[in-house]
């Protein structure tokens, strides 16, 4: 009887640990998308401006307030608030050129089109190798300590700060006993690089334990809006 009374006066001091539910699957998928898909594509967009400064006729880079560029090697540059860029001495638009980009760690990516944007949201440095295959087409290889993605990116209707890109590809993230395998939908992903962040397409994540699939999450983009479908809905 005393035990019953004592248990009856118990109060909750901790609500419990976070664990896999639809919200956490959505949040994790968003972070994978931001880190390994949209960030590398946006880097290509930013590098269009830098490419124009280095190899084009419009040298307006240093007009952007608060951004400082320091040359650190023969073809290497450090861009304040972004990271390191090695151009290999070739224009980004030259077929066969290879640019190596390292986004700085412990920085926040805001998704804005200005060059005051930073690296990855997960505090791991993100290295992106951009290889120009043909005009307006690049192969991207993005990797961090725990994740990797291979993307094919095509540029359409490009204007300064308002490009439209189409991306295809897939990747994975490894966290010891668990991993996530992700891919862009078969229709491809269209990213309009304006302030509204318009996108069309889908992005799927499968959460794995070894060979066992635990959960899935599909992000669908409809212009300014997006929706989620998870296995825990």
């Amino acid at each position: 009887m005393c035990l019953v009374v004592f248990l009856a006066v118990s109060c909750r001091v901790y609500k419990g640990d976070n664990h896999a539910d639809s919200y956490i699957l959505e949040e994790t998928s968003e972070n994978l998308f931001a880190g390994y898909v949209s960030a590398p594509v946006i880097f290509v967009d930013w590098m269009q401006d830098f490419n124009g400064y280095l190899f084009g006729e419009n040298g307006s880079w240093n007009d952007i307030a608060g951004v400082n560029v320091v040359q650190t090697g023969e073809h290497a540059y450090h861009i304040d608030g972004f990271g390191l860029v090695d151009t290999g001495g070739k224009s980004l638009d030259d077929p066969g050129s290879v640019w190596s980009i390292t986004a700085e760690s412990y920085a926040r990516w805001t998704g804005f089109s200005s060059l005051q944007c930073f690296g990855t949201a997960n505090d791991e440095p993100l290295a992106v190798t951009v290889t120009c295959g043909s005009e307006n087409m690049w192969e991207l290889s993005a990797s961090s300590q725990s994740g990797h993605a291979d993307l094919a990116v095509t540029k359409h209707d490009y204007e300064i700060g308002n490009g439209t890109y189409e991306a295809r590809g897939d990747g994975s993230f490894d966290d010891g006993d668990y991993s996530a395998v992700f891919s862009i939908g078969p229709e491809g992903l269209t990213i309009v690089r304006d302030d509204a962040g318009v996108m069309y397409g889908s992005f799927k994540v499968e959460f794995m334990s070894g060979e066992q699939k635990l959960d899935t999450c599909v992000m669908s983009f409809y212009g300014n809006e997006q929706s989620f479908t998870t296995s825990r809905d």
Binding site: F6, L7, V9, S10, C11, R12, V13, Y14, K15, G16, D17, N18, H19, A20, I24, E27, T28, N31, L32, A121, N122, D123, E124, F173, D175, G176, D177, Y178, S179, A180, F207, S209, L214
Partner: peptide, 29 residues
Amino acid sequence: VDRNCGGYFGGRSLSSIYGDYSGPVYMTG
């Protein structure tokens, strides 16, 4: 009471999402 704050990805790693987890904890006072 160990609070599961996760590691990265906005506060949660895959291991913390899928590892054994604690439900609510109660104390009598």
